[in-house]
Nucleic acid binder design. Structure first.
Lengths: 224, 224
DNA sequence: GTGCAGACTATCCAAAAGGATTAGATTTAT
DNA sequence: ATAAATCTAATCCTTTTGGATAGTCTGCAC
């Protein structure tokens, strides 16, 4: 059965190109075409439930009601419809907002038309939201830059890293605060020699050979 | 020119299948094959820099040193190498940890072999990290479920800290990455003695007297 | 009990880092 | 043009680290 598609884009050229490409693919039929969010919502109200599209491609920059707001409203009104962003914008802020608004996928317009059809078809087959490689890459970077952080529900993970023993972890914490062997020894009431031995063992486990490298690893990878 | 690839997987079958698939593609050559993280790090130390792989495929579940730890260590040791997770696991926790550890991409093993080759090749062409559709989809869901939240950095202030000069700031950045005097000198084409002089000056401005203390201050106060 | 892993201590050696000082070359500000 | 910073470089000396090795003492598993 053909997939019913909706198109929301303020540029007539875009609407037509997209429409033709989708129809050419054979698996799609066009359920609704709108030129902005207001228009889309209005036209949806005129449709019977069985005429509703299964997936709607939404441009972001539009007059009256932009893509993000359109998606935010539409996903609550029509939770069964999948909204996929199709835009030229790839800045972090827009990506993040669109996803929060409920976007099921995020495609870039410079994606070749066959790719767009293919990705929509794959979405239908696998149930996974289509995402352009460049966008996925940006999201990874956001996570790595700590712009995105994971909120653990129950957490409780004792965060055992690199198989360090309890004592070693304790010593690493002091090390990272700039303590010298002497000071670590004094702090933990052990010989500075022992402190040193522990530190050398830690280095071996982390595969580094200096304090600075160990600290770098600890800070960058969040071992604290 | 062929792309040099590394393979880290504890199952000999996987290593061989992957190896053959990559070699069959024509664009790849195998730089290093290891059966776990320890093995990989050990073999890397034996290689000359020009023999280093450009991309390394890493399995997650391995004995001795698992994939996440391997990536965490390796990305600090070899920042120029791109590490791509290749695994059967697709649970949120593993995905997130691997990305935080510095994974440049995340591929699922049920991806057809041609796809893996293709995605690696595309990565080389576009510079974007390869991500299996199912994984990208999971990440979107994490964001939508508020398991991932965006931390907006409001203070874009360049924040010229402690009146460090431009050169000193430059050197501090290298210092924090674990560079020794020799290495800083080589990096900036100055004498190690000069590098050292700068570092000592930095210490005075920061009122510290060791590398570890300077790093601690830099990281805690966000001087980077 | 035997073995094993972790914590503890120590010593020797080499390399690196820290500190103080001196000093020429350049750039910037007054 | 002169003074003040900054960047550059070197030397001498002390302290700290990193690495290798070697040993004791504990508690826990088989």
């Amino acid at each position: 059965m053909a997939i019913k598609v909706g198109i929301v884009d303020d540029k007539a050229v875009n609407r037509n190109i997209l429409k033709n490409k989708l129809l050419g693919h054979g698996h799609f039929e066009i359920a609704v075409v709108a030129e902005d969010g207001e228009d889309f919502l209005h036209k949806m109200k005129a449709l019977l439930p069985e005429e509703h599209p299964g997936v709607v491609l939404v441009d972001l920059e539009m007059p009256h009601l932009d893509g993000v707001d359109t998606i935010a409203i539409s996903t609550t009104l029509y939770p069964e419809i999948k909204f996929v962003v199709l835009t030229i914008f790839d800045d972090e802020d827009k990506i993040f907002k669109a996803i929060k608004a409920g976007a099921f996928g995020y495609l870039l317009k410079d994606e070749s038309a066959e790719n767009i059809s293919d990705m929509l078809w794959q979405m239908h087959e696998s149930g996974a939201g289509p995402i352009s490689p460049g966008i996925a890459h940006k999201i990874l970077q956001l996570i790595q830059n700590n712009d995105l952080t994971m909120v653990m529900k129950k957490n409780a993970a004792p965060k055992v890293f690199f198989d360090l023993t309890e004592r070693e972890t304790e010593i690493l914490k002091l090390l990272v605060q700039g303590f010298a062997y002497k000071e670590i020894g004094a702090e933990l009431s052990i010989s500075p020699n022992t402190a040193k031995k522990h530190v050398i063992n830690i280095y071996q486990k982390l595969h580094v050979n200096s304090r600075a490298q160990a600290m770098h690893l600890a800070y960058e990878k969040g071992l604290l």
